[in-house]
């Protein structure tokens, strides 16, 4: 918990309606203001989560995302607008810009990065809770395992089509994500292949946000001990009650934390349904230097403080980040992406 100072009168003005809600009250408000949370993924779920928690006055919010704002995000990712698309802002930068004028008293910490085994421990440092805004199971398992190992609660949320689900997993108190599922295959059903409507995302993230608030104010007896699942188009709601943790769970029972075991990570991954391959280079990229280098041979090169976009004559596009990551857009073929990477970046 971090110390957050705010005049009592200011606090009452800003948060009066929330403090009048007796389960929170003044004591709960102070707890929220002294809390620190990590939101992983600032897409549809992440933007709704951040909006709720910033307005609620959670003291320190660290947001991490690897991507930048694109036009197809605007239908549901509520913190972004057309100017963010024009400027190609990284999502966390665009989000911070909006959220800072919503509540200037909250400490916002944007991190442009891919969440991996290499940086997860650092991202969790000092956090009281982790909120899942990711779009893939690989990262969720990493969060699940890292959170259980560090003893940090983790809210799962997922949405696709008109279906959504959410649960709060608390180390030592509830089962974990791996108690329910072992395989991380989404069966080809992603927001990029079968779509998603915005209301389901808002509902899922709101379930996550309210459980976060209960956890942070210490309302343990009110926490939901189930996995909520619904289809808001076909009018179905179901709650899967938590039982005991799975006795063979490699995470919360056997404490093996499989996602934290080092192994040869794939340096190149195809981002499902997005015609994009991400390649993690092993050295930082000096974007201004790369702009000069690639301008004469590329169709178009655009630089902003966060990324360099290079339109290639082959038709594909490279999006380069200072941390060494490169998105090869316009292909899902990893070999083709590596070829282009080798041709233009060559490391």
């Amino acid at each position: 918990m971090e110390e957050m100072q705010m005049d009592s009168e200011q606090m009452k003005q800003r948060y009066s309606r929330q403090m009048l809600f007796s389960p929170i009250g003044e004591a709960g408000q102070r707890k929220l203001m002294n809390s620190a949370v990590l939101i992983v993924g600032m897409g549809a779920l992440g933007t709704v989560l951040a909006n709720h928690l910033v307005r609620a006055g959670v003291g320190h919010i660290r947001m991490v995302d690897r991507d930048y704002v694109e036009k197809s995000n605007l239908q549901r990712q509520l913190l972004y607008d057309e100017q963010d698309v024009v400027h190609m802002y990284p999502k966390v930068i665009a989000a911070e810009k909006k959220l800072r004028i919503v509540n200037s008293t909250v400490k916002l910490e944007p991190v442009v990065a891919d969440v991996t085994l290499a940086n997860i421990a650092e991202l969790l440092e000092g956090m009281d809770l982790v909120l899942d805004g990711t779009d893939n199971f690989q990262t969720r398992f990493l969060l699940n395992d890292a959170c259980y190992k560090a003893g940090i609660p983790f809210t799962y949320g997922g949405a696709v089509s008109s279906r959504g689900m959410s649960a709060l997993f608390v180390p030592g108190r509830t089962p974990c994500l791996r108690c329910f599922i072992q395989a991380g295959d989404s069966g080809g059903e992603t927001c990029d292949t079968i779509g998603v409507i915005a209301p389901v995302v808002d509902i899922v993230a709101s379930y996550q946000a309210v459980e976060a608030m209960k956890l942070l104010v210490g309302a343990e007896d009110q926490r939901r001990s189930s996995l909520v699942t619904f289809d808001i188009w076909h009018n179905r709601f179901y709650e899967l009650k938590f039982g005991e943790p799975h006795p063979g769970c490699p995470c919360c029972q056997l404490k093996q934390y499989p996602a934290l075991e080092w192994r040869e990570r794939d340096a190149a991954v195809s981002l499902c349904g997005r015609e994009t391959v991400q390649i993690r280079g092993n050295a930082p990229l000096e974007l201004a230097v790369w702009k000069e280098r690639l301008s004469p041979i590329a169709r178009e090169v655009t630089l902003n403080p966060f990324l360099l976009r290079v339109e290639l004559s082959e038709g594909e596009r490279l999006v380069m980040f200072p941390d060494g990551r490169v998105l090869v857009q316009g292909t899902e073929d990893i070999v083709r992406a590596k070829t282009l990477y080798a041709r233009y970046i060559g490391q």
């Binding site: 779009d135 969720r140 997922g158 329910f180 989404s186 059903e189």
Partner: peptide
């Protein structure tokens, strides 16, 4: 029987 699919999008 309830079959609950875990949803991966976000």
């Amino acid at each position: 029987i309830e079959l609950v699919h875990f949803v991966g999008g976000g």
